[in-house]
């Protein structure tokens, strides 16, 4: 029986950039084993939400609780060590390093096993010695997403997975992530999606952000994809 504690709880989280507040007190819970979609238009606060959970941004008030302990002020490194992994919508790769060096960094000390990434993204195999800055947008996205396959995580946050990817490939990736989450009952995935049509099939929980506030939550069946 897995523990009954939720994996992550956000309590009235507020985040501001200078004079502008991007999140106006968002509260939600991520249970272990779930795949959650955070949907909303660009500028609704999805990226802000994900970035503050991963520690890239400091909330101005509110709490972030990880399995019962408060991590609101914890550093990126501490959260990563606990198992929070963010794949940002841009800048998810080390641009000055080669594809292989990127993958080795993502894999940490288990550097030998890059096979998983090459299996999922055969395109990367041809590019191992190319610098990431020289990759196309789609190829960079594949490289960034390889991290989810190589690095250990318990909570995976993916910002705009389908960015720059052909939809067939994006669809396959949603399935891969859902499998990864399903394989370990204590793992969860959060997907931030501006146009969630393709993602909805893979998720079990949906949160809708509108102008920095949580407008609705529910299961995918509650929502009509066309109106999101």
């Amino acid at each position: 029986m897995p523990s009954l504690l939720p994996l992550l709880t956000l309590d009235a989280l507020r985040v501001r950039y200078g004079p502008l507040e991007a999140l106006h007190g968002v509260s939600l819970t991520i249970e272990p084993g779930e795949v959650t979609a955070v949907v909303g238009r660009n500028g609704a606060g999805k990226s802000t939400l994900l970035r503050s959970v991963a520690g890239y941004l400091r909330p101005s008030s509110g709490r972030i609780v990880w399995q019962g302990s408060d991590i609101t002020r914890a550093s990126i490194g501490r959260r990563a060590a606990a198992g929070v992994l963010l794949i940002p919508d841009e800048g998810g790769v080390f641009r000055s390093l080669t594809v292989r060096e990127n993958l080795e960094l993502f894999a940490g000390h288990r550097a030998a096993d890059l096979k998983l990434a090459f299996e999922t993204f055969p395109a990367l195999k041809e590019l191992t010695s190319r610098r990431a800055a020289l990759l196309s947008g789609g190829e960079q996205q594949m490289l960034a997403l390889s991290r989810a396959l190589l690095a250990p995580w318990r909570l995976l946050l993916v910002d705009e997975l389908s960015q720059g990817l052909a939809s067939a490939l994006a669809g396959r990736l949603y399935a891969v992530l859902a499998e990864l989450a399903a394989a370990h009952p204590d793992r969860s995935v959060v997907l931030a999606e501006p146009h969630p049509r393709a993602a909805l099939a893979a998720v079990s929980q949906v949160h809708v952000l509108r102008r920095g506030e949580l407008a609705a939550s529910g299961s995918p069946a509650d929502f009509d994809a066309a109106t999101l």
């Binding site: 550093s75 990126i76 490194g77 963010l86 940002p88 000055s96 390093l97 960094l105 940490g108 690095a151």
Partner: peptide, 21 residues
């Protein structure tokens, strides 16, 4: 050296997998 180059490239990104600070 690889870790150092990663930190120089993107510190936030590196912080998740190496002791960047």
């Amino acid at each position: 050296g690889l870790l150092v180059r990663a930190v120089v490239d993107d510190r936030d990104l590196a912080a998740a997998s190496v002791p960047a600070d």
